[in-house]
Nucleic acid binder design. Structure first.
Lengths: 263, 263
DNA sequence: AACGTTGGTTTCGTCTTGCGGAATTCGATC
DNA sequence: GATCGAATTCCGCAAGACGAAACCAACGTT
C-alpha cells in the first residue's frame, strides 16, 4: 500500500494528493486536517498543502467555520458531466444506427462545449465517400448544423454571448453576419431542424437537431452529414423530420434524471 | 486563468495534474497524450507523467490499444458514493427529526464502510444525558445495532467475510462468539430490527434497521440510541417497529436511481 | 520496401521547489 | 487568563520534478 515500485513515472506529490482526495471523499462528510494527516501518515504540513491545493482547484471545499474539508463542486461537476455524456451516448446509439441504415449516411452526436460542439459519438455510413468528424473534435457552433441546432434553442442571454465571440471562417460559405445567423436561427426554431451547406467544410452538408433536457436546455445535438451532391433539399427535409422524431424520444428519456446538487 | 499568485501553499505538480484530470474529464471521451499536452501547454514529458500517475491512482483509465486516456473507475466510484450518501442523508433527514421528537432520543444514520459503519448524520435529542456518536466516526459492525441491521441483510458471502475479520471487544458485553452473533442476526431478520445493549458502550443501547437499495442490499442503517435505563424492552420494540416503517419508506424512495455503494 | 512523419517512451543533468521539523498563532475551553 | 489542541507559517536541505533531446514504434506515403 505504501510502496509503488512499479511505475517510475508516477509523480509523488500528485499521487499523495490523490490519496488525500480519495480519503476525504470516502469519509462521506467534513474532515479536519489532523485527521487526514493521521490516517494517511502524511506529515501535517504536507497534508495541509495538499488540502489547500485541492481546494484551490475546486475539488474540495473548505468550511471556514469548522475548518474542515469535504468534496467540492469541481469533482461533482466532472462526475455529472461524465454521467450525462454517457447517458446521452447510450440512449442515442441505437437510434443513430437505425438512422444510418435509413439514410445510408454518417450520423453524428455532439455535446455543447464552450463556444463549440464536441463530437461524442458517430456512426459511419459504409460508403467510400463519407464525411466524418472525429470523436472528440470540436467544431465552431455557427458553422455546423449541430451548433446551429443548439444555438437556436439556447436561452437568449447565452446565445448572445456565444455570438459575441469572434466567428471563425471555416469555408467561403461560412456565415459571419450576425443578422444572417440570427435569421437562420429563427428559421431553425420554426422548422425544428438546422441545415448547413458547405459552411463548415467544402462539399459537405449537414442536418441537425437539438437534444433537450427536462428544462428545454439543449445539452446535445444529433445530425446526419453527407456530401452536398448526395443530399438534395427534399431529402434534407425528410432527414430533418426523422431526426426531430428521434431526438424528441431521446430528450424525453434523458429527462428523468434528478440532477441534484448537494447544497 | 494561468496565474495563481494567491495561495502560496498550492503545490504546483498537484495543481497541474488536476488540470489534466479536468481536461480529460471535460473532453467527454478518450484523449491522447499529445492533445492534452498541446491544450494545456504543458510539455509532453510532464503531461505523460501526470497521465501515468492519474492512471496509477485509478482516476484515469488507459486504453492500451488506442493509447488514449479517459475517466477512470476511481473517480466514478467516489462520485457515486458521494451522491449515494447525499441522497440518503437528504431523504432520511426529515424522518429522523420526526423520530427524534417522537421518542425524544438521538437518531443516527450510518452507511456501511469496510467492516464498519460510518455515521453520516445524527439528530440529537435535547436532553442532558444523551448518547452521541460523531458524524464521520466508524464503529464496528458487530457491536452496534446499526451494524447488526446491515449484517443481517447482507448477502451470505459478504456477511461471512465480515465475520471472519477479528472482532474487537468494545465492552464486556460485546458479542464475540460467531454462533451467538449469527443466532442474533437470524432474529434480526425475523423481527425486522436489531438491538444492542451495552455492547458498544457501557450504559447505552440502540435499536437499528437497515435501509435497502432496489436490490435489497443494505446500503445504510437508521437507529435510535438511548441510555439503557430510559429504554425498556417494550419501548425498544415500539421504536423498532417505527424505525422499520420509516426505513421502508426511505428504501423505496432511494431505489429509483442507479446508485451503487463503493467498496 | 525504404522513407518520413506523427506520437509515445526513456534518459539524464540541472536546479527548482516540495518536504517536514519546529516555531508561532489562533481559538476554543476551563 | 491560562491551557490545550489544532491550524498556519518559517526555513534550510536535498529529493525529485522538469523538460530538452534522444530514442522507438507504428503508420502512410512514395
Amino acid at each position: 500500500m505504501a510502496k509503488k515500485p512499479d511505475n517510475p513515472y508516477v509523480v509523488q506529490p500528485v499521487m499523495k494528493a490523490l490519496r488525500v482526495l480519495e480519503l476525504v471523499a470516502r469519509h462521506g462528510h467534513e474532515i479536519a486536517l489532523t485527521a487526514v494527516s493521521k490516517e494517511l501518515r502524511i506529515p501535517k504540513t504536507t497534508t495541509f498543502r495538499y488540502l489547500q491545493t485541492l481546494t484551490a482547484a475546486g475539488f474540495l471545499d473548505h468550511n471556514r467555520s469548522t475548518d474542515r474539508y469535504n468534496l467540492g463542486p469541481q469533482l461533482r461537476a466532472i462526475a455529472r458531466a461524465d454521467a450525462s455524456v454517457s447517458k446521452i451516448r447510450a440512449l442515442a446509439r441505437p437510434a443513430m444506427i437505425e438512422l444510418m441504415h435509413e439514410f445510408n449516411e454518417t450520423v453524428n452526436l455532439a455535446v455543447k462545449g464552450n463556444g463549440t460542439v464536441v463530437y461524442i459519438d458517430l456512426v459511419e455510413a459504409n460508403r467510400s465517400l463519407r464525411m466524418q468528424a472525429r470523436i472528440g473534435e470540436s467544431h465552431p457552433m455557427h458553422s455546423t448544423a449541430l451548433g446551429k441546432a443548439i444555438l437556436a434553442f439556447l436561452p437568449e442571454a447565452e446565445r448572445r454571448r456565444q455570438l459575441d465571440l469572434p466567428l471563425t471562417e471555416m469555408t467561403g460559405r461560412t456565415l459571419l453576419e450576425r443578422e444572417e445567423i440570427e435569421r437562420q436561427l429563427r428559421q431553425v426554431v420554426r422548422a425544428g431542424y438546422a441545415t448547413e451547406m458547405g459552411e463548415n467544410e467544402d462539399g459537405a452538408m449537414c442536418v441537425g437537431v437539438p437534444i433537450l433536457d427536462e428544462d428545454g436546455y439543449p445539452v446535445a445535438a444529433l445530425s446526419i452529414s453527407a456530401p452536398l451532391m448526395r443530399m438534395p433539399r427534399s431529402l434534407a427535409a425528410k432527414a430533418g423530420t426523422r431526426l426531430r422524431e428521434v431526438a424528441a424520444t431521446i430528450s424525453v428519456q434523458f429527462g428523468s434524471h434528478p440532477t441534484t446538487t448537494a447544497l
